[in-house]
Design a protein around this nucleic acid. Structure first.
Lengths: 219, 219
DNA sequence: CGCAGGTTTGAATGTCGTCAAACCAAGTGG
DNA sequence: CCACTTGGTTTGACGACATTCAAACCTGCG
């Protein structure tokens, strides 16, 4: 899930145009950012933290369909309807831009349009990658895949003792992303821990001594 | 999965430019159209039939990540690497266009670029929809979801007796798309048949007396 | 300290996968 | 025309893995 944020795709003059109307906002973990089927009134850049995109079935079950790390762009361009629930997974900093301003910019910049196309194609690739995970991997491989994804995208610091990072998701969120139950996620994490593939502190801080070994578990 | 094909997004003069280099090709069911990781040398429009996009795990398991019905566009724009296996699911007619010609057109037409962005966003929505199916639905709901999808996209003819269509996929392909095994797919189809939700002739021709009832089974 | 939320662990249940056999439709050759 | 083959599909018996239900366990906080 490597996206380029708004800032990365704008020229200096465009950025200036944007700065006039952009506003920073802060949100606590769990805060809803948009509701399913609501009209989109603004777009946003993820400045800090992780945002989760989800859909819910009629029976109440939930499935996360995407995670947005900084500096990803948030919000679906040119769609009138938002098909997703958008929530802060961790504490989040956003840089909001009114919809019409951004679309104005997009209309005037063919370069920008090109970059947005690239990004949506990247998102599509990511979504299809995850379809493989959901359709063909067992619980162990799914959990390993998620840890790998998080390690890659949240600036995990590498040391001699291994790579460390904080989980931006609760067990419940992880389960909803992996198509599993909380209990199964917990069991698989415990298994990886007992086998020395990962170390866990306070249920949230993860250390990976050997990334290749984790990758191997991911299938 | 509602895409607009090339033809739908081009002006008359652009179509003319395209006609000079476009070539029609025919492929039998099962024929490979592109290989994973191969450089893309051309793009194509699906004129007739259904094309399947898939990825394979190291252990040989396969997962379909998309289906392309006429008149969808085939091939990933602006990516140098093709991450997918592309095969004819049924007998297929393609309209091929050399890569450079299409990208030339895209570069010159901001309207075209816009439409391609729309399409990739639609594909992304579709992929995320299917993530919900793979992550949160049981076998029965998955099979019903697929039948519903095929009914919608392959021009199913509606009559007083119900809606009828041919399955463009083998049981094996269906299993790979649904994240199930052949046997489970077969069992669920039999179940739907015994319960009168669908009728099946020759293992391929499906009739749905009451679409709403099928939709209800899809979750 | 004691409560509350989230997490871990355990035992029992159920769904789907695996293995294996029967079935069906279409095509080939005697 | 019928026996035989072949590939795909269906059905059955069994086992494995994930879910469910329930209880114990941490960690942070009043």
């Amino acid at each position: 899930m490597r996206h380029s944020g708004i800032c990365a795709v704008l020229t200096a003059s465009e950025l200036q145009r944007l700065a006039q109307s952009a506003r920073h906002t802060r949100h606590d973990a769990g805060a809803p950012l948009l509701f399913e089927n609501s009209a989109i009134t603004s777009y946003a850049n993820v400045v800090e933290g992780v945002v989760k995109l989800s859909r819910v079935l009629r029976d109440g079950k939930q499935q996360l369909v995407g995670l947005q790390f900084a500096p990803d762009l948030l919000g679906r361009l040119f769609g009138d309807e938002n098909l997703l629930n958008v929530e802060a997974a961790s504490d989040v900093d956003l840089c909001r831009v009114p919809r019409n301003v951004l679309e104005e910019l997009v209309a005037s910049s063919t370069e920008l349009k090109q970059r947005l196309l690239d990004q949506s194609l990247q998102d599509l690739d990511d979504a299809r990658d995850w379809m493989v995970t959901l359709g063909r991997k067992d619980a162990q491989q799914r959990v390993a895949s998620l840890l790998l994804l998080i390690a890659k995208r949240s600036g995990a610091d590498a040391a001699d003792t291994g790579t460390s990072f904080d989980l931006p998701l609760s067990r419940s969120d992880m389960a909803d992303f992996l198509g599993l139950t909380i209990e199964t996620v917990s069991r698989q994490i415990s298994k990886l821990r007992h086998e020395g593939v990962i170390e866990v502190a306070n249920h949230r801080r993860v250390t990976v001594p050997d990334m290749a070994r984790l990758a191997h578990r991911a299938g």
